[in-house]
Amino acid sequence: MTALASSAAELIAGFPFPFPEDRYRYSTNVEPAGRSVSTPAGQWGAAVVDIDGEYAAELAERADILRRDPTRAEVLPHMQPAAWDAAMTLMRELATAYPSTMTLERLGDARWRWTNGLLGLTQEFVYGDGGTLPEEPLRWIAGQVQEDVVLLDQRDQLYGDAGVVTFAADWSFGFDVGMSFLEIHGPVPRVREEGVITRAHEFLKRLQPHQPYRRTNWTLTIGRRLDVSTELYPEWGPDREMIQRVDDATFGRLVHLRVEVQHLVRLPDSGAIMFLIRTYMLPLELLATVESWRRRAAEVLAELPADMADYKGIIKYRDRAASWLRAAGGEAP
């Protein structure tokens, strides 16, 4: 589990609370990216890439996971242009969002200099020339952002043909690489019947460059554990039993609302779609300090239909999570 570098106040201030209503259902909840959202505790969403107090810790964890398990990163051969395009796009986004520490300078036609002041890194490179970077471009840039990255190639459908995913919430990038968007979402309950995935697919196929979109997704995770991948299921799976037996104080400290802010970007050069997944986690004990979040999260968890709770892997403790949140505000559980 990640050691926490930020203060509780910092985590709360930047938390993208995901529930606009007391009831949650799957929907194609996409909106234009880059609009800052004010919350009772702070704000989020001003930039496509977000750096917070966990930057160094999360990058170290990503590097460690990749060292132990190379299947978390893959770029199929035809995705090499998309990987360069993604690296370039992410550098531009970083330089735009953090101009005091990140700069991208053009030295010549295809020659560039990248400076990442937070990592003390300066790198000159020639766009498209793999020999000018210390490692494969997508892996290289994924070592400088907290987001997981998946690149989708558009043929008849969209295919997840490249990515670096170290913080997967209950899925396996190593298995899913090369699958179509529709295949990947095959097991999600309801969404096929309700047409949500098909609509999302049609939307993505029409997405144009320079007009990024975003959406949020959520689940609960036990402990501040970013890597809850299928690969590590034997390590974190038993927590779902353990959490039912702990006392209330431990429950509120361990159970986290896990929110993914996902950005959807049509890359301007390769035409691939870049899917960014940025994971935020807040323990219930901190969530409950913001009254409107506490009340709404309790309502959503209590009301969530069983099939959705089952799919999210939270069926055995979501009732307790709802009761815990109600009790934290002095409500009847």
Partner: peptide
Amino acid sequence: SFLASDAHAAGLPGPTGARP
């Protein structure tokens, strides 16, 4: 191929290998 994962890490159905 088909995805397979640990059946006994918890007394719960295994993960489905897709997004939450």
